[in-house]
């Protein structure tokens, strides 16, 4: 597999992103390494071909934003909105992720080895997210679809106003948000969890050690009796 290296100390990010947006036929199967990212924002955003991009260090906001097909590995920590609105592919953060990781992501897999900040998986729309550590408050707010696995703890208001997304937490949950409740893990959900643990490098972790959360579906329609929940 070809590997092309870019040094952001020497090459503007604009040129790197432009190249990574090139014709898929010419890019598919290629690997790219980005040296000296130094927290730059919008690294490897809008990718849409079968490439593997490795960011050798810390990334700023929106790394791998709106990713399609590509695999992006961040060998460091990521700023706000990593893999936001991802459609497909894999984004792997080997360090920590800041706020709104995987926000509104529609598809693909986001793996965060460390902790994630506030509002992780906010408005999740179908992607899978696995966090090796803990997540901050208000995570999975209004999460619509997809699966969200947390090996550590969750902060306040987990799953507030959640729709049909599934949340699996191994540690403690400080508090649940409105309309989020504990669910009994059925066979289908257990399989989803088992597969995601395997895909994210946590093969030794038992799915039975997780508690599943989801929507109580009491806020799906406006009603005066729910006024206190809003």
């Amino acid at each position: 597999m070809d590997n092309i290296s870019f040094d952001l100390d020497k090459k503007p990010l604009r040129e790197v992103n432009q190249l990574l947006h090139g014709d898929a036929a010419g890019l598919n199967g290629k690997s790219f390494t980005i040296e000296n990212p130094n927290g730059a924002h919008s690294i490897a955003v809008g990718l849409k071909s079968d490439v593997h991009v490795t960011i050798k260090g810390h990334a700023g906001y929106y790394a791998a934003g709106m990713n399609q097909i590509a695999k992006v590995t961040i060998e460091g920590s990521a700023g706000s909105g990593v893999a936001e609105n991802m459609m497909s592919g894999v984004v792997h953060v080997k360090g920590f992720a800041s706020n709104a990781a995987g926000a509104t992501a529609n598809g693909g897999l986001l793996i965060i080895d460390g902790d994630a900040g506030l509002r992780c998986a906010i408005a999740l729309k179908g992607a899978d997210i696995v966090v090796g550590g803990s997540v901050g408050s208000f995570s999975a707010f209004m999460a619509q679809a997809g699966n969200f696995v947390i090996l550590g703890d969750a902060g306040e208001g987990l799953g507030d106003s959640i729709y049909e997304a599934k949340i699996f937490v191994r540690g403690k949950v400080k508090s649940l948000g409105a309309d989020c409740e504990v669910k009994t893990m059925d066979a289908e959900s257990k399989k989803i969890l088992t597969d995601l643990l395997a895909k994210s490098g946590h093969v030794d972790v038992k799915p039975e050690s997780f508690t599943q959360y989801g929507s109580a579906r009491t806020l799906y329609h406006f009603h005066v009796d729910n006024a206190g929940a809003y």
Partner: peptide, 29 residues
């Protein structure tokens, strides 16, 4: 269902973040 849309963007807060968000959209396009 009765759909509720957010009043704030999910992945940025404030004008400094907005600048970074606009830059991301420019980079993608």
């Amino acid at each position: 269902i009765d759909q509720r849309s957010s009043c704030r963007h999910p992945d940025w807060t404030g004008p400094d973040d907005l600048e970074i968000k606009i830059n991301e959209i420019r980079e993608i396009t």
